[in-house]
C-alpha cells in the first residue's frame, strides 16, 4: 500500500521534474542581472578613477599647464604670493631617487630570497618563510613611516653622524623592505611555474642544482622575474605614507643619498589638506595624481604582458 503511494508520487514527481520549473527561471534571471550589475560596477569604478582624477585636474591642464614647466622646472611654489610656479622636476627626481635607492637593495634581496625559497630550501622552511613574508607585507605603510621617524632617524643621526635623519637613504631602506614581499612572492610564482621536467632534464645531464638554476630556471622564468621587479618598482613609486614620513620634505634635487627630498605622492598627501577646493593648487595636485596614475598604469600594463607571456609557456 505504502509502496504504491510512493510509486504514484514518484511518477508525478518525474513529470514535475521534467516539465516544470517553479519560479526558477525568474530567480535565475534576477541573480544573473545582479551579478552582471556587480561586474559592471567594478568597471564603472575603474573608469571612474581616471575620469574623476582627470576631471578635477582638467581646468589646470587645459589652461596654465605646460608640460615643459611641469617636467623640467625645479621651482615648486604653488602658493607663492609673487609668482606661482608649478615645476615638478624635483618631485619626479625625488620619487626616482627613493625608487632607485630602494631597488638597489630590494632587487638582489628579493630575487635572491625568491630563488632560495623556490629552489634551495626544504618544504618546511619554505612554508615558514612564506608566512613571514606575508606578515612583512601586511605591515601598514604608516607603521613603516613610524619606524623611519622613530627608529631609523635617530640611528642615522647618532650612528652614521649625518645631520638629517629623514632622507633618501632612510626612505630607500624602508621602501626596500616594503617592496621585497611583492618581489619575492611574484618572483617565486614565476620560478615555480617553470615545469619540473626542465629541472629533471638538466639534472639528468649531470648539472648541479646551481647550474640548473643559473642556466635553465632563471632564463625560463626571466619574464616573470622582470615583472616581479617592475611591480616592486610600482609599489615604491606609489607608496605614500612611509615616504611622506621618511623623506624629510625638501623640494630640491638631492646631491647625496643623505639629502632630504620630496616625492610626488608625499606632495599630494602633504598639500592637499591645505589647498582650497577647486583652486589652481588643488588642480595641480590632481595633475600630479594623474601622472602617478599613468606611471603605475604603464608599469602594471607591461608586467601584466610579461606575466601573461610566462604563463603561456607553462
Amino acid at each position: 500500500m505504502m509502496g504504491k503511494v510512493i510509486e504514484e508520487e514518484k511518477r508525478q514527481l518525474s513529470d514535475y521534474i521534467k516539465h516544470y520549473r517553479p519560479k526558477q527561471i525568474l530567480r535565475d534571471r534576477i541573480m544573473e542581472s545582479i551579478i552582471f550589475l556587480g561586474g559592471l560596477s567594478a568597471v564603472i569604478f575603474t573608469i571612474g578613477i581616471f575620469l574623476f582624477v582627470i576631471k578635477e585636474a582638467w581646468p589646470f591642464l587645459s589652461s596654465r599647464f605646460s608640460l615643459m614647466e611641469f617636467l623640467t622646472n625645479i621651482e615648486w611654489y604653488p602658493v607663492s604670493n609673487v609668482s606661482v610656479r608649478y615645476g615638478a622636476k624635483a618631485l619626479f627626481v625625488g620619487t626616482a631617487a627613493v625608487t632607485i635607492g630602494s631597488m638597489v637593495l630590494a632587487i638582489p634581496v628579493g630575487i635572491g630570497t625568491a630563488i632560495f625559497i623556490s629552489e634551495f630550501c626544504g618544504p618546511k622552511f619554505k612554508e615558514v618563510a612564506k608566512i613571514l613574508i606575508e606578515l612583512l607585507a601586511s605591515i601598514p605603510s604608516v607603521v613603516w613611516g613610524f619606524i623611519a621617524v622613530m627608529v631609523m632617524n635617530p640611528f642615522i643621526i647618532n650612528v652614521l653622524h649625518e645631520p638629517v635623519g629623514l632622507n633618501v637613504f632612510n626612505a630607500s631602506i624602508i621602501l626596500a623592505l616594503m617592496s621585497i614581499p611583492m618581489i619575492v612572492s611574484i618572483g617565486e610564482d614565476a620560478l615555480r611555474s617553470v615545469p619540473d621536467t626542465y629541472r629533471e632534464a638538466a639534472e639528468s645531464l649531470g648539472a648541479t642544482r646551481l647550474e640548473v638554476v643559473i642556466r635553465v630556471i632563471i632564463p625560463a622564468a626571466k619574464n616573470g622575474l622582470i615583472a616581479a621587479i617592475l611591480l616592486g618598482v610600482g609599489r615604491a613609486v606609489g607608496e605614500t605614507m612611509a615616504v611622506l614620513m621618511a623623506t624629510g620634505h625638501s623640494v630640491a634635487i638631492p646631491d647625496s643619498i643623505f639629502s632630504p627630498v620630496r616625492t610626488l605622492t608625499a606632495t599630494v598627501a602633504a598639500e592637499m589638506g591645505e589647498a582650497p577646493k577647486g583652486s589652481e593648487h588643488y588642480q595641480t595636485l590632481f595633475t600630479i595624481g594623474l601622472s602617478l596614475l599613468l606611471i603605475t598604469f604603464s608599469i602594471n600594463f607591461i608586467s601584466d604582458i610579461l606575466l601573461r607571456k610566462s604563463w603561456k609557456r607553462k
Binding site: 606609489g238 599630494v268 596614475l293
Partner: peptide, 22 residues
C-alpha cells in the same frame, strides 16, 4: 575589465584618495 582590475591593484593609495575626494 580584466586589464582594468589588474591595473586597479597597482594604483597608489594616494590616487584612490584623490578619486574619493573628487
Amino acid at each position: 575589465i580584466n586589464l582594468a582590475i589588474i591595473n586597479l591593484a597597482g594604483v597608489p593609495s594616494i590616487v584612490y584618495s584623490l578619486f574619493g575626494l573628487g
